[in-house]
Simulated scan of single mutants.
Amino acid sequence: MEFARIGSPGSVFGGVSPVRRLVAVSAVLLVLLLGGCSDAPSEPAPVDAATPSTARSTVDLSALPKATTFGTTPDAPSDPAPNEGTNGVVLRVEQDTAVYDSVRGKAIARLPARQFKSPTWVPIVAERGDWARVLLPSRPNGSTGWVRSESDKVHKARSRHVVNVDVDARRLVVLKSGREIGSWEVGVGKKASPTPRGRTFILASIRETVNDYSPIVLPLGTHSETFKTYGGGPGTVALHGWPDPGVFGSASSDGCVRVPADALSLLRSLPLGTLVRLR
Rank of each mutant, 00 (worst) to 15 (best):
R158N: 11
I216S: 04
T209Q: 13
S183A: 14
P215Q: 09
R197D: 05
V165N: 01
W184D: 00
G189L: 09
I216A: 08
E185P: 05
V174N: 05
V163Q: 06
V173R: 15
S205N: 09
P219M: 05
P219D: 03
F201V: 03
W184K: 02
I181H: 09
P219A: 06
R207T: 11
V186D: 01
S214R: 06
E150G: 14
W184I: 02
V162W: 02
G182H: 02
V167T: 13
T200S: 15
D212E: 10
L218F: 03
V165E: 01
S193C: 06
V174G: 02
S193R: 07
A192E: 15
P215A: 09
K156D: 07
R158Q: 15
S214T: 13
E208H: 05
T209V: 12
G187R: 00
H155N: 14
A204Y: 01
K176T: 15
D166E: 10
P194H: 09
I181T: 13
G182T: 01
V217N: 07
T195L: 04
V162S: 03
G189K: 04
S151M: 07
E208C: 05
G182S: 07
S151C: 09
V165F: 03
R179T: 14
L175N: 09
G198F: 06
K156H: 10
A169K: 14
L175P: 00
F201M: 04
K191C: 02
S151F: 06
D212C: 01
L175K: 12
R179N: 12
I202Y: 00
I181K: 09
V217K: 13
D168F: 09
I181F: 10
D168M: 12
V186K: 02
L172M: 12
V147Q: 07
V163G: 05
R160F: 10
T200C: 12
T195K: 01
G187T: 00
G198S: 08
S214V: 08
L203V: 10
V163I: 15
D152Y: 06
E185D: 13
I216F: 07
D166R: 07
G178M: 11
G198A: 09
R160K: 14
R199E: 06
G182R: 03
G189F: 05
V173S: 11
H155A: 06
I181A: 10
